[in-house]
Computed example of a mutant assay.
Amino acid sequence: MEQLEDEYPGDSDWNMLVRLYEEDYLDDDARSLAKQLDGNLDMAVILYGKRGLKEGLWWVEQQVPALDNMRPADCLKDPKLIKRLRTALMRMP
């Protein structure tokens, strides 16, 4: 079965998206969300921009079908799973 991390467009695309979201969403709420994401401010900024603080904090602890029913918080220790999480964040409407 093909995994979402196989679709990761690369660090260059990720960093470009992060810079775009930082312009509007890098604030104390993003920093609060980053604490739930093991300090990953880049992911927090995008999640905050796409879902807001309240829903973002909720989402981090939920089993997500796109992550093979893993919690986003469980994807933060493995480089392969970080790519999976980043891809999910990039695809999130």
Rank of each mutant, 00 (worst) to 15 (best):
Y8V: 10
A73K: 15
L4R: 13
D13I: 09
D13E: 14
T87F: 15
D11E: 12
R86T: 10
M43K: 05
W14P: 08
L20T: 05
R51F: 02
L47V: 06
P9L: 11
R71A: 15
D28F: 09
A30T: 02
R86Y: 10
V45D: 00
V18T: 06
D78Y: 05
Q62S: 06
A30E: 02
V60G: 02
I46M: 13
L4S: 13
R31K: 12
D29Y: 00
P79D: 15
K80E: 15
Y48D: 04
N40Y: 03
R71W: 07
D68Q: 14
L57A: 06
N40R: 14
L57P: 04
R91W: 08
A34F: 02
L20F: 08
K54W: 01
L4Q: 12
R51T: 05
Q3G: 02
V45C: 05
D27S: 07
R71D: 10
K80F: 13
L4N: 10
R84A: 15
L47D: 03
L17T: 08
D24I: 01
M70C: 10
L26R: 06
R86K: 15
K54H: 04
M92L: 14
Q63M: 08
D78Q: 10
Y48K: 12
M1Y: 00
E55H: 05
D68H: 12
P79H: 14
C75K: 11
G10E: 06
A34L: 12
N69K: 10
A88Q: 03
M70Y: 09
L57G: 05
L47S: 05
Y48R: 09
K50C: 11
L76G: 14
G10V: 11
P72V: 07
I82T: 05
T87K: 15
I46S: 05
A88C: 09
G52I: 08
S32V: 09
